[in-house]
Each structure stands twice: as C-alpha cells, then as structure tokens.
Simulated scan of single mutants.
Amino acid sequence: MGTAAPAEEVLQRLLGAVNAHRLDDLAACFSPDYFNETPAHPQRGFRGQDQVRKNWVEIFSQVPDIRARVRGTALQDDTLWTEWEMAGTRHDGAPFLMRGVVIFSVTNGLVSSARFYLEPVEDASGDVNAAVSRVLGNTPDSREQAPS
C-alpha cells in the first residue's frame, strides 16, 4: 500500500487539528503566505497564515464544541477538492452549522491557497422559487401575472 499524497496528508492534519481544537497544529497546515479566495464574497479573501490563526481563535472561542467532517474529496495533482460540514453550538447557545466546498492547493506539504465556498446553513429563505426571484431582484408584486 502506497503513502498518501501530500494534499491528503495535510487534510488529515487539518481535520484532526480542528476537531481537537489545536490552534498551533491547525495554523501549521498553512503556508506563511497562504492565499484564501472567496469567489462568492470577494471582499472576504485574505492572505497569510496569521489571518487563518485569527479566524480560528474567534471560531474556537465562539463555538467551543465545533466538530468538522469532510464528506468527500477529489484529488488532481496538488489540488484537493473537499466537501465540509462544521457543526456545534455557538457561545450564545444558538446552533452553528456550515457546509460547502473548499478547494485546496498544496505546495511542499502545506496549504498554499484555497477557493472557499463554505457557508452558514440557513433554512428560512424559502424554496427554490423564492431564491431564484431574490437573485433576480424580483419582488412579490413583480411576480404577479398580468391580467389576460
């Protein structure tokens, strides 16, 4: 049996660090010049391992029982596609649940960049029709049919 690819190894280290709440081990999975791109929210992108650490200090303090799991992966060269679910209870007692995809690039055994599509799960925005209307800027009044 062969050894795991560096991308798979760093994923296992990262997942273990998140679930054990080991901040130093988590931050050590990322290169110092790590680049996070958040295509659906461009202003949220950032660069640097220090920001990773800052984010996770906040997450661990506000969701003290956070647990993560990776539901699936696909590896191509040094690019690892991952589907995540993170759940726990926020400090204020509210449930915390995020799901989505993170696409990691791994260089020299460290995460060098990621395209981040992980989002909070919400169930109050309506069905698919409401979502399509909202994205298109339609209001309830504009969806009413004209008289025939």
Rank of each mutant, 00 (worst) to 15 (best):
V52M: 08
S112T: 08
R90N: 12
D78K: 12
V106K: 08
H91F: 09
H91E: 14
D50Y: 02
T107L: 10
I103P: 00
K54E: 14
T82L: 01
P95K: 09
R71V: 11
L97I: 02
A94W: 01
T79Q: 13
A94P: 01
V52H: 08
P95N: 05
D65Y: 04
G72W: 00
S112Y: 01
F46N: 10
T107K: 07
S61N: 15
V70M: 06
S61A: 15
I66M: 13
D65P: 06
D92L: 03
R115T: 03
L80T: 04
A68E: 04
Y117P: 00
A68G: 11
M86W: 09
W81F: 14
D65E: 05
N108G: 10
Q51I: 15
R67V: 11
V70Y: 03
A94N: 11
V101A: 12
D77C: 12
N108Y: 00
G88H: 11
S105F: 04
V70F: 01
V106I: 10
V63Q: 05
Q76D: 14
L75F: 05
D77T: 12
T89S: 14
M86G: 03
F46V: 13
S113K: 10
E85L: 13
M98C: 08
P64T: 09
V70D: 04
P95F: 02
R53G: 08
T82P: 00
N55T: 09
V102P: 00
D50G: 14
V106S: 07
I66K: 09
A74W: 01
I66S: 07
Y117T: 02
G88S: 08
G100D: 03
L75I: 07
S61G: 11
R99H: 06
V57I: 15
T82W: 00
P64G: 08
T82V: 09
F46E: 12
A68V: 05
Q51H: 13
R47E: 10
F46Q: 11
